[in-house]
Design a binder for these strands. Structure first.
Lengths: 255, 255
DNA sequence: AAGTGGTCTAGACCACTAG
DNA sequence: TAGTGGTCTAGACCACTTT
């Protein structure tokens, strides 16, 4: 009868916790400051550690916190805006944007990459590709790891003698690629979790949330290269300067 | 001595589980098929339910699974490619891309939006904005929810009499916006978690991982509008047709 | 060695969906 | 009403970093 519905949908504890912590971060903490450890926080809020962790995980996902095993939980700085798309399309390595070639090798591409290379061109699964590995640095921090797949047929002029591996080899492949006439490119962004090797490069644990940026480079002959870049989702905001001019400098808008 | 290092880094159980499940999904399950429930799966693999859930969560994050409370866990279809950027910049509502206006109201913008509107123009926090809400549908499924902030000053011609709220009002704001000359636009993508209202529209639980797409629309007078779109990260792959022509049709490349 | 976050367990109860 | 996934607990141990 007169029983008014106080809580139609009882908010989960971790959700409420997240809100409380979020406000506390805004008001009482500075960037880089370390939070009390999880056991103490859990006790302070009167919840189990697992519940507290659920809240921390979401805040980390949103780029508000940074947690490191053996160290502690710190308040994260605002996300870095990293330019991904430019008005002009260009081959990887042309712009001075912090990419550092690491290595290159020649092998058969994984099935998923074959699909990407095959569309619109004549590429078969048994054709070898050069796989170039690059790391993108921003402010001394690795923000992305990339695997660039270049079919050997795309760079016939590449001397086999020159630097069989290592950064020099990677640079050689990029140089040859830049000789071609780029007709256009294609890009997609999706959520993923870091593979073990990428996670290591990015100083994260395997499975950490990442933004997968897949780019296809087209020439008249078809798809000349495919890039799969793995960006740290916790620290990065990908920016696409479709034109305009002014770079986005804002902080995140929503939770 | 002769003790060979068998497991330098003992793989976490949930990580191994994820791999096993992932392979099983590829081989033994069809899209849409329902998996055994969590309690049975956990028993079958000899782990606690929480551990099993950790694996399922990652697979859902990667778009491989779909879980619905009270229903079960099903194998997800490949992610939908949703076009976000086009070669030409255009006002929202100009292209026929599945956006459905829901509502519009006039109020003071949140602080984060003020920052976005303020940069490069003369916008103060006490100026009212029209807030247009739109939902993006793909194959009968809501994939994104958007809040479009249009300073009242940007659309002075908008009749106050016409439809005070609802879809008609939203359309009126969009119509007025399209009268302006668009000078350029700016876009950024980052990871976030769904607010309660967006989660409801997207048929997800609050806190679900989403891709936040922030767009600024520029005219000669400054920033004429700001859009914050929340895309379901589990089902969407954002595509940017920087040019090229061919739409990306591939499936996800990495985990 | 001490302290941190990461993994894991074995339970319990709740919210939701569908028959 | 039965069955599902979602939340929560109170422990335990492990991997890692720092001192």
């Amino acid at each position: 009868m007169g029983t008014t519905q106080l809580e139609t949908v009882p908010e989960p504890k971790y959700w409420h916790l997240k809100t409380v912590l979020s406000e506390a971060l805004d008001q009482d903490f500075a960037v880089g400051e370390v939070l009390p450890n999880e056991r103490e926080l859990a006790a302070r809020f009167g919840v189990a550690r697992a519940t507290l962790r659920q809240a921390l995980e979401q805040l980390e996902l949103e780029g508000r916190l940074q947690r490191r095993r053996g160290v502690g939980t710190t308040v994260a700085p605002p996300r870095v805006g990293v330019a991904v798309g430019s008005a002009q399309h260009s081959w990887p390595g042309e712009a001075v944007d912090g990419w550092e070639p690491q290595d290159a090798s020649e092998s058969l591409p994984p099935a998923a990459v074959v699909k990407l290379l095959g569309a619109g061109g004549a590429f078969a699964a048994d054709q070898p590709v050069h796989t170039v590995r690059r790391i993108r640095m921003t402010n001394g921090q690795a923000v992305a790891a990339e695997l660039l797949y270049v079919p050997a047929a795309s760079v016939p002029g590449l001397p086999a003698i020159e630097a069989p591996s290592g950064p020099a080899r990677a640079r050689a492949v990029l140089r040859e690629l830049q000789r071609l006439v780029l007709d256009g490119q294609d890009r997609s962004v999706e959520l993923g979790s870091a593979r073990a090797d990428d996670a290591k490069e990015l100083d994260r644990l395997p499975g950490a949330p990442v933004l997968l940026v897949t780019t296809r480079y087209f020439t008249a002959a078809g798809t000349a290269a495919v890039s799969v870049a793995t960006y740290r989702a916790d620290t990065c905001r990908l920016t696409f300067g479709d034109s305009g001019g002014v770079e986005i400098t804002h902080e995140p808008v929503a939770s």
